[in-house]
Amino acid sequence: MDSRFVRATIRHLLTVIFLGICMMWIMAPTNTYIQKWKPSISKKVVSTYFGTQALTMLIWTFPVLFVASLGSLYLHLGKNSNQNASQSNEKKHRQALWRKPVLVKGPLGIVSGIELALLIMFIALLVWSLVTYLRRLHTITPKAAAIEGVKVWEMKLFDAALYIGLTGNVCLAFLFYPVARGSSVLPLLGLTSEGSIKYHIWLGHMTMVLFTIHGICYIIDWAVTGNISE
Rank of each mutant, 00 (worst) to 15 (best):
W25C: 13
N84T: 09
S88N: 07
M121W: 08
I164K: 03
V111A: 04
K44W: 10
P63V: 06
S129Q: 04
P39C: 05
M121A: 15
I147S: 05
W128Q: 08
G149K: 03
T56H: 15
Y163G: 02
Q35S: 15
Q95W: 05
L137E: 04
K156S: 07
G109V: 05
L162A: 13
G71E: 00
H93E: 11
L73D: 05
Y33K: 03
A146P: 01
K92P: 00
D159W: 08
N31H: 15
V104Q: 12
V104C: 09
N82D: 13
T30Y: 01
T61M: 13
E90G: 05
T61S: 13
I110E: 06
Q87R: 14
M24I: 14
L166R: 11
W25A: 13
V150M: 07
Y133V: 02
F62G: 09
T139H: 12
A54W: 04
K105M: 13
R94L: 15
L103S: 02
E154L: 08
S72Y: 14
A54H: 06
V104I: 13
N89R: 11
K36S: 15
L108M: 14
L55D: 01
K79R: 13
H76L: 12
T48Y: 11
Q87S: 13
A54C: 09
D159S: 09
F158I: 05
N84R: 10
L55H: 05
N84H: 10
S42V: 06
L65W: 12
V67E: 10
K36A: 14
Y74G: 02
L73V: 13
K156F: 08
S112G: 03
P107H: 02
V127T: 08
E154Y: 02
L134G: 07
R135H: 10
M57H: 06
C22K: 09
L137M: 08
H93D: 07
I120Y: 01
L125W: 03
N80M: 10
F122Y: 10
L119F: 10
L65Y: 11
V111Q: 02
P142V: 02
A68P: 00
K100T: 06
R135C: 07
R99Y: 03
T56S: 15
L166W: 09
L125G: 03
T141N: 04
M23V: 14
Q53P: 04
A117L: 11
K105I: 12
E115D: 07
L77H: 06
K38E: 15
Y49T: 14
S42E: 10
S129P: 00
L73G: 05
M23W: 12
I164F: 11
V131Q: 07
T61N: 11
K36N: 15
T61E: 13
V64P: 00
T61K: 12
K100M: 08
N31Q: 14
A117N: 00
